[in-house]
Design a protein around this nucleic acid. Sequence first.
DNA 1: CCATCAGGCTTACGTCGTAAGGCTAATCTT
DNA 2: AAGATTAGCCTTACGACGTAAGCCTGATGG
Lengths: 222, 222
Amino acid sequence: MTAERVPLSRARVLGAAVAIADRDGIAALTMRRLAQDLGVEAMSLYHHVANKEALLDGVIEVVMAEIAEAVGEPVVEDWQAAMRARVLTARQVFLRHPWAARVLETRTSISPGVIAYYDGVLAIFRAGGFSYDLAHRALHALGSRALGFSQELFDLSDPAADAEAEAMVQELAEHFPHLAAMVAEIAHDDPDSALGWCDHQAEFEFGLDLILSGLERLRAEG
Amino acid sequence: MTAERVPLSRARVLGAAVAIADRDGIAALTMRRLAQDLGVEAMSLYHHVANKEALLDGVIEVVMAEIAEAVGEPVVEDWQAAMRARVLTARQVFLRHPWAARVLETRTSISPGVIAYYDGVLAIFRAGGFSYDLAHRALHALGSRALGFSQELFDLSDPAADAEAEAMVQELAEHFPHLAAMVAEIAHDDPDSALGWCDHQAEFEFGLDLILSGLERLRAEG
DNA sequence: CCATCAGGCTTACGTCGTAAGGCTAATCTT
DNA sequence: AAGATTAGCCTTACGACGTAAGCCTGATGG
C-alpha cells in the first residue's frame, strides 16, 4: 500500500516554496529543489506556475494572505491606534518570513494582496478624517513601514559582523568619531538588551510613532 | 600602430561595471559582459576583484564616493536644513544610478563609504544638539531615507503598468474602493504633472520633512 | 641572465531557469 | 461505449551564469 499520491496544485507548490524559504533561506528556493521537496520533477512545476517570477509573485500572495487574516477588517475609530496595530500585526508576519521583505521589493507588477492591504490602510486614514491628498502623502511617507518592515542598511548588531567590528573599533574611532562615540555610549547604556545593542522592534516603533504623530498634527491642522 | 593597451585595474573594472548598470540595468552586469566591455576575458577580472559579490561591493563604494564628493563636509549649523540638503544631494546620485539602491540593500558586509556617510549624518545631529540616544533613534527612523531613497512597494505611475492598470480600474473600484477613489481624485487634481500623477520627489521631500520636523520637536523637548 | 610573478587567456564544471516534446490516465463528446 | 482531448506528469537538452584550475607571456628584480 503505497502512500497516496497527492496531486500537485498551485497551493501545494506555493506552500512548499514558503516552507523552503523559511527553513533554508530564499537562495535555496530553486525550481529543482522545490520539485524535489514535492517528490516531483522540476518541469512539472510549470503546469502550476508560469515561471520562477510567477512563483515568487505567488509566494508573496501567500504572505499577504497571512497578513490579511492577521489584521482583519480595518478599524474605523482612533485612526492612530488602528494604524499602529495594523502595522505591528503585519510586522509579525514579516518577522516569521525574514526573506519576504526582500522578495516583495523585487516584484515588478503590483500584487493584489498588497493593494488590498493598502486599501485597508487608506480606509483607516479616511475614517480618521484625512483628505485623499494627505492620505496619499501619508502612504508615501510610511513606505514599506506601512507593511511592518524598514530597510536596515547596515546592522551593527549583526552577530556575523561582530568579530570584524570588534577588530575595527580602533580605526572606526579614528575615521568615524561620531559613530564610534555613539556605539560606545549606547552599548554602555544597554549592555545586554535581549535583542543586542539595539532593539529593532523598539527602533521600528519609534520611527512609526514619529511618523504617525507627525501625520496626526497635519491632519488636525486641516 | 595599434591602440595602446590600457592595462586593467580595479578602478577601470569598477568604472565599467557602473557604466553597464547605468546603461543596461543591473541584470546586464555579468562577469562575461563586463570583461567584454573591457576587451578582456571574464577570468581576467578575478585578478582585480575577488568575485562577483566583491565587484558589487566595489560598485557601491564608487557610488558612495560620488555621494561623498557631492555632499562635502557636514554643515554644523541649522541641523534641519543641513540634513535636508545632505539627503537631497545624496538622492541626486541615486537618481543617476537607479539600480544602486537595490544593490546597496543586498550588501551583507558594512560598507566603509556608507559608514562614513552616516558618520557625517551623526555629526549634523550632534552639532544640532541631539543626544546620542536620540540621534541613534533618528538614524533608524530615517533608514534608507537618510541616503536619499525610499522603497516604493508599488508604483502607480509606472508607465509599464499603465495599460493593465487602465483595464483594472473597473474591478479596482469594486474591490478596493478607497484606493480607487484616491487615484481618481488625485489624478483629477493634477492631470498632467511633469512626473506623472504622483511626483516622487515631492513625496520624498514630504516624508523627509515630516520626520525631520518630528525629530526637531523631540530634540527641543529635550 | 635567469627566476619570479603579475596579469592576461583557455578550458571546463556545476547550477540555474526553462524550451520542446513524449507518455499516460482521466475526462469529455457523440 | 468508444474514440478524442487534454491535464499533468516525465525526459532530455540548451544557453547563461559564476568560477576553479592551470597555461602562457612579458616585465621586474636580484
